[in-house]
Write a protein that binds this DNA or RNA. Structure first.
Lengths: 119, 119
DNA sequence: CCGGATCCTCTGCGATACTG
DNA sequence: CAGTATCGCAGAGGATCCGG
């Protein structure tokens, strides 16, 4: 696959750990701007470095926007999905549906174990 | 994300290197059974170990089928997409379209550089 | 509060050689 | 032909500390 191929380009960021989780977290807030610390709190186990890295990558890919308010302390840093980011969620949904349809055995995400997946 | 979540499960295999390429290679042959060596030849740079690993993973995930004919030599080992594997290609196409729409700058995959992406 | 800098671990993957 | 076995490295990502 040519490195210029869109599939390659997309897999290059969506394949990384936490990326999809972060997108879903922002998606749940819809048009709202979510703070760094809010996202972090919702993703137990993620380290600040990795969250930072992913957020930057997603900015570069234009899936999210970043707004900084350093006018006063504490600094307020917020993120939100762009239009393309919202469109991308559709792909994640397609993945979810494929998984549910072809791997229904577990009934995951419809079960009480996966309430967080409200998307 | 719960490890039982379908999205998690899917990303767990689709995120790995070569996986999508292998699926596309089998898809191009449609219902035909493709031999190990054929796939290998079409994916320059892949090592036998990795190809083996990916093929096994995909069997486990029920995206491909494996048929072995050891009745006479040389051994003939062939692979083909299952129904769910074919359905999965739709997701890859969705990714491609998203990439083309939101990252058209390069015009990749419509360009002469990416003729291999005939899917 | 946000996130950069360091260090360190762990594993995915490549290279190569070998077998039924 | 269709893989397995062994070795080694680079790079992703976790833990922790620090600075604006």
């Amino acid at each position: 696959m040519d490195k210029k191929c869109p599939v390659y380009a997309v897999m290059n960021f969506m394949g990384k750990r936490w990326t999809i989780l972060i997108l879903l977290e922002l998606y749940k807030g819809k048009s709202a701007w979510k703070r760094y610390s809010e996202v972090k709190k919702k993703l137990p186990g993620i380290t600040p470095k990795v969250l930072s890295m992913r957020l930057k990558e997603l900015q570069k890919e234009k899936l999210i926007l970043h707004k900084i308010d350093a006018s006063d302390f504490p600094i307020k840093s917020t993120y939100s999905l762009t239009k393309s980011g919202e469109e991308f969620i559709k792909i994640v949904k397609a993945i979810k549906h494929w998984g549910l349809y072809w791997k229904v055995k577990s009934g995951a995400c419809e079960s009480t174990n996966c309430k967080k997946c409200e998307f």
